[in-house]
Design a protein around this nucleic acid. Structure first.
Length: 812
RNA sequence: GCCGAAGUGGUGGAAUGGCAGACACGCCGGUCUCAAAAACCGGUGUCUUUACGGACAUGUGGGUUCGACUCCCACCUUCGGCACCA
């Protein structure tokens, strides 16, 4: 009987569906396990990255299922988004039609991989029974003042013709199309994620099961820094200029102030000064530069004197005010105090423009001299030229100066955050309409909850130009104010699609619930997600937003936990010849073709065996051949044994021992961080041993036992062939109902040891000894060994080190 | 610059401080065959030795230890995040 993967895989995929083997039922009496993979954007075809992501998740889900957990393993589609709209423009169709077609395709491909999803729970975020709850959550945030509209300078992608969140700007470019992002003055909706800055940062400590690099990236992104805001006064009118510094210990060394060109005070202080014209020209010039240019390393810092002066509040010194492009309006207060001696950037700028310098921190090791300094001294030291603070260490001075300034009301301690509020308005059609109306009389109004969802109008024009498509749909825009019954209009933007994925893991717990985004009881049972699996590209975006939503919903009293994802596994990328697979490089391997050629089980096995899940994986068709060879080898073994009817005990203790050792090893690889590659390699070892035993006695009961165990151990990795082999071996029900095999510690134990003998820490010999003999006996046996004797000769033994069950080291 | 991850045979990759290179790919040899493929068995880090064996080997240099891929210190390289961040 040949291994016919096509037939077998189809058969078991149908079986799992028909008998709802992986349907998850709410049942608080059972221990739950929620295994979730990041749901895909329905682009049409799955790629190797999806295959890897979902295979890893599937192994975990199936393993936990065999271990007796009530496993929730859902799948859905992140179905709103720009590609659908672009496709609609190109093909003159509707984004919904394109999206549904893609979902159908992708679902089929996912089915062909044999993933154990509970398809009863499938969700698509573009359906109104899903996005209705986006609107609901938005309105809750609006109620609490966490959703607000604000005019400000925002990121704009000229190619996508829409605004972008800070998180969507990658190195100055649009995350989607890489076009240079420009700033635009617009009135837009924001979510106040900064209200949770502190908690989002501090709670990262709870996430001990997340990869350190994801934690580090989020920490960087949130970016907390402690410092002092200092109030300088304008000379002569006394107006306040606030500057932010993390080095308040250097305040006595501030020799000038620099304002960002966009700083609102600039225009005022240059008025009627000889510098006015020049400075205005400079501001004009800077405003035309894109952020990428302005912040690039190699561009020289430019600036000029404004003609105005300020008073340093700590020593009443009158210092000049400059304006320069290296100070950014969006960070701190848009103004800095410059301390050239202790800040490298200020140092270079002061040298260039011949500005004053003063040392205020003295280096303990080698005394600084102004005339000899060729760079700023940014290290620690002792305060000098700092009035009453002279002589104390600068770390101590930081505290003391800040306290003193607070007392004198010339400054205050502040915590500064890098994280900005989340801009969510998008000038696109294929998204969730923002449930807000504007009434001339009543102003900005939230839609009443009972009028949700605000549905997307089916008909709209997709031209790809001229702002939000919704703004041109009159029947959508024009609306009656529900308060005054007068004329009003709807908001015509849609929400950023990252909103959709910020709470979908909650919806999966009760996907059809009608009274709220989710059923509190069911969420209480299933959440938090025990294991989340996805790509590193979401380290900030999706994972940060989801954490924010979770905290918000908790504060609404709807959730009772702080963090949505207990454990996170970020799978490595799939490469080909060391390069990322991409259309432009033309090096894409289509999973569908591989499945046709080798079957899903072989593909799964290769992906799991070739590298640990977190590491990068280099695609290699040779490796596929290897996986195929192994599966057919196991298959033949099962068929042969099946044909051998009368099995009797043949005293094959070493095979039984290997079997128990293998169960132990695979179990610990699964529990200790999903080391699938080594788990599979130990199953391969067991199979090799069965083959050798088979040569001697095919009818042995021990062989049949070892084979059954092999099939069970393989089941989570290669489910279809395992089900079939389980059936061939005479079992009636699904192998996933058969339980995870257990091992007996006694049987797994070795009876003898190959004891390594080292002389002066070098391997010199080895002897076989029984387990559990005394140290004296080991001593005697070792010193009787001929080869050991030759190495020792007549030298006296200085030390005799015994490492139990492993080796001895004789020092001479 | 700050933060994070990684560096082991021809290749992918294994090794709670205790035999470095498990398992697999590739390659070489054998069995079977008229032959080939498949399958099965065996060999395979480098140098050296007829052989037994020996020496050298986990990015580099130090250290701790009887013993270091593993722990500590310094550095190099690669990848990733943040950054004119005050």
């Amino acid at each position: 009987m040949k291994y016919n993967f096509k037939k077998i895989e189809k058969k078991w995929q149908d079986f799992w569906q028909k008998y709802k083997v992986f349907q998850a039922d709410f049942n608080p009496s059972r221990k739950k396990y929620y295994c979730l993979e990041m749901f895909p954007y329905p682009s049409g075809r799955i790629h190797m990255g999806h295959v890897r992501n979902y295979t890893i998740g599937d192994v975990i889900a199936r393993y936990k299922c065999m271990c007796g957990f009530n496993v929730l393993h859902p799948m859905g589609f992140d179905a709103f988004g720009q590609p659908a709209e672009n496709a609609a423009i190109k093909n003159k169709t509707h984004p919904g039609i394109w999206t549904n077609k893609c979902i159908e395709w992708m679902k089929k491909e996912l089915m062909r991989m044999g993933f154990s999803y509970d398809w009863q729970r499938e969700i698509s975020t573009c359906k109104d029974d899903y996005y209705k709850w986006n609107q609901w959550i938005f309105l809750k945030m609006f109620e609490k003042g966490l959703a607000y509209k604000k005019a400000s300078s925002v990121n704009w992608c000229p190619s996508c013709e829409t605004t972008l969140a800070n998180e969507e700007v990658v190195q100055g470019g649009c995350w989607r199309c890489n076009t240079a992002v420009v700033q635009k003055e617009l009135e837009q909706w924001f979510l106040k994620i900064t209200q949770y800055s502190e908690e989002l940062l501090v709670d990262l400590k709870e996430l001990t099961q997340w990869p350190p690099r994801v934690i580090a990236m989020q920490e960087n992104w949130i970016g907390r820094s402690y410092g002092v805001e200092i109030y300088f006064r304008l000379e002569p009118n006394g107006k306040i200029i606030s500057v932010f510094t993390t080095r308040v210990d250097t305040i006595f060394g501030a020799t000038y102030i620099v304002l960002a060109p966009e700083h609102p005070l600039v225009k005022e202080i240059i008025k009627n000064k000889p510098q006015e014209k020049q400075v205005l020209a400079f501001i004009e010039k800077v405003s035309k530069e894109t952020k990428v240019v302005r912040t690039s390393e190699d561009v020289k810092k430019e600036g000029m004197f404004t003609g105005a002066y300020a008073i340093n509040p700590v020593n009443q010194e009158k210092i000049p005010i400059w304006v320069a492009d290296y100070v950014l309006m969006e960070y701190g207060t848009g103004a800095i105090m410059a301390v050239p001696t202790h800040d490298q950037r200020d140092f270079l700028f002061a040298k260039e423009h011949n500005l004053a310098m003063r040392i205020v921190i003295q280096n303990k090791e080698s005394s600084l001299e102004l005339s000899k300094m060729d760079q700023a001294y940014e290290g620690d030291g002792i305060q000098v030229n700092s009035g009453q603070f002279d002589g104390i260490s600068n770390t101590e001075a930081k505290e003391k100066i800040a306290a003193w300034m607070e007392e004198k009301q010339i400054g205050r301690k502040v915590t500064h955050w890098r994280l900005r509020d989340w801009l969510i308005s998008r000038q696109k059609y294929w998204g969730t309409p923002i449930p807000i109306i504007y009434c001339d009389k009543c102003g900005i109004l939230a839609m009443p909850y009972d009028e949700l969802p605000v549905k997307l109008p089916k008909k709209a024009e997709f031209t790809g130009e001229g702002g939000s498509p919704l703004s041109k749909v009159k029947s959508f825009v024009q609306v009656k104010c529900h308060k005054c019954k007068g004329r009003a209009r709807r908001d015509t933007d849609t929400m950023a699609t990252f909103i959709d994925s910020s709470w979908y893991f909650l919806r999966f717990c009760s996907p059809k619930f009608k009274d709220a985004p989710f059923d509190k009881q069911e969420v209480k049972y299933w959440m938090p997600v025990d294991q989340y699996i996805g790509g590193i590209e979401h380290a900030i975006l999706h994972l940060l937003y989801s954490r924010f939503f979770t905290k918000f919903l908790r504060d609404l009293g709807m959730l009772s936990f702080n963090e949505p994802f207990q454990k996170l596994l970020t799978q490595g990328m799939v490469l080909k010849e060391g390069e990322v697979m991409s259309k432009s490089k033309g090096n894409i391997v289509d999973p569908d073709e591989i499945i046709k050629k080798y079957g899903a089980d072989t593909l799964r096995l290769f992906i799991l065996f070739a590298a640990p899940p977190e590491a990068e994986l280099d695609w290699n068709e040779r490796g596929m051949e290897g996986a195929w060879r192994f599966l057919t080898r196991v298959w033949r073994m099962v068929i042969e044994v099946k044909n051998c009817k009368n099995t009797t005990s043949a005293g094959m203790d070493s095979l039984t021992k290997k079997m128990h050792q293998t169960i132990k090893k695979v179990s610990s690889d699964m529990e200790g961080g999903f080391k699938f590659n080594t788990a599979i390699s130990s199953i391969m070892e067991l199979v090799n041993e069965i083959y050798q035993a088979k040569e001697r006695n095919l009818g042995a009961k021990e062989i049949k036992e070892a084979i059954e165990t092999t099939v069970k151990l393989l089941a989570a990795f290669t489910p279809h062939i395992s089900e079939e082999m389980w059936l061939v071996l005479g079992h009636k029900d699904s192998i996933f109902k058969s339980g995870w095999p257990s091992y007996n510690e006694e049987f797994a134990k070795e009876k003898t040891i190959d004891l390594v003998i080292q002389v002066n820490s070098r391997n010199r010999s080895r002897i076989e000894i029984p387990v559990g003999i005394s140290e004296e006996e080991i001593h005697k046996l070792v010193l009787n060994d001929e080869r050991t004797k030759q190495w020792i000769k007549d030298s006296p033994v200085k030390k005799f080190i015994i490492v139990p069950n492993k080796l001895v080291n004789i020092l001479i």
